[in-house]
Structure formats: structure tokens, C-alpha cells
Simulated scan of single mutants.
Amino acid sequence: MKSAFRYLMFAAVLLSPGGMDSVQAADVPMPLFVATPQELSITRSASETTGVSQVSGQSATVLHGDPMKPGLYTVLLRLEPHKRIMPLSHPDSRFVTILSGTFYVAFGDTYDETKLKALPPGGIYTEPAKANHFGETRDEPAIVAITGYGPSGTTYAAPTTPHTATK
């Protein structure tokens, strides 16, 4: 509970007028953007985007900021059906929102399908810095929005094994 409270306080500071001013001042101005999940164009290969898993059949679009640089960023990530993301972590803490589809996520150093929790559209979870997590899609694609404060990156828990799998 203490951990969730810490993230809520962090979000409150960022969303306060002073917090947003400091983020905006340190970052590029935020562009105006309005879209439904169906209107999103996410076509760039995820292999070209820092801070996301490198699953074949995955694409990403950076909406704001630059995950490689210090500052606030948001990335949209699209996963095709039947994709697995093997355990990995990031150097930065992040907040994830499921926009469409269902994404299954869990935390741990090894992939364990019995731990996965189904998150439908509107579902959220946090990725604390350096916390290994894993996930998958099943019969439908999923679009998630990832927001963090860079620089970001990706470290796999088992770098000698394949990072991704098609179920």
C-alpha cells in the first residue's frame, strides 16, 4: 500500500501546476493530440524505440518526449495477438494504461503463466524501476500507453534465452 501511495503522490506532484511547469520547462512543449484507440497509427517497429520489449509483431509510437533522454515521455505500444514478453525490467519507473484489447501481466524473474492477470481496456499497472515483469496477448491485439521519466532502457532477466515467443 505504501508503494501505491508513493506513485499517487508522484502523479499528484507532476499534475500540479508547479509540477507540470517544471516538466514542461525541462522538456519540449506537449503537442495537442486527440484520438480514439481506433484512430491511433502505430506503425514504427518497436525495435527502433528505446524502453520497450523487442517482440516481433510489435510496433510503437512516441507521443511525447524522448525515452532516451531525461524527461517525461509517453510511448504507445501495439502488440499483435499471441505474443509473449519474457521477463524484463527498465531503469525508470513507469505507469501503463491498457487502451484496447486485453493485456496479461505479472511480475517476477521467470515467466509463469499462472501469475498473469488480465487487464482489459482501462486497466492500469506500474512498472517500478528495475522490477522484472512479463506479459502476453492472447486472441486479440492490445494497445498500451507507457509513461515514464527517462532515460529508459530494457534489460532482460535471462539475456541468453530468446526474449520473445509466439504462443
Rank of each mutant, 00 (worst) to 15 (best):
152 S>R: 01
5 F>D: 13
59 S>C: 12
72 L>K: 00
4 A>Q: 13
137 T>R: 02
61 T>R: 15
11 A>T: 07
124 I>W: 09
127 E>F: 00
75 V>R: 00
139 D>K: 14
31 P>K: 10
54 Q>K: 15
87 P>N: 05
54 Q>G: 11
103 F>G: 06
72 L>G: 03
165 A>G: 11
84 R>V: 07
156 Y>N: 07
76 L>P: 02
151 P>G: 05
52 V>W: 04
81 P>S: 12
106 A>N: 02
8 L>V: 06
19 G>C: 08
142 A>P: 08
72 L>A: 13
164 T>V: 08
79 L>I: 07
92 D>W: 07
134 F>L: 05
5 F>M: 14
28 V>S: 14
125 Y>W: 15
53 S>A: 13
51 G>S: 02
108 G>Y: 02
127 E>Q: 12
61 T>A: 15
97 T>P: 02
62 V>Y: 01
140 E>P: 05
162 P>R: 10
11 A>W: 09
158 A>Q: 15
30 M>V: 14
133 H>Y: 09
110 T>H: 14
70 P>M: 06
119 L>D: 00
8 L>H: 09
116 L>S: 01
127 E>L: 07
31 P>M: 09
12 A>Q: 10
152 S>H: 01
78 R>Y: 12
52 V>K: 00
54 Q>A: 10
32 L>C: 08
131 A>Q: 13
111 Y>T: 00
116 L>T: 00
82 H>T: 02
36 T>I: 04
51 G>N: 00
88 L>M: 11
55 V>R: 01
97 T>E: 07
26 A>M: 09
26 A>D: 11
47 S>R: 14
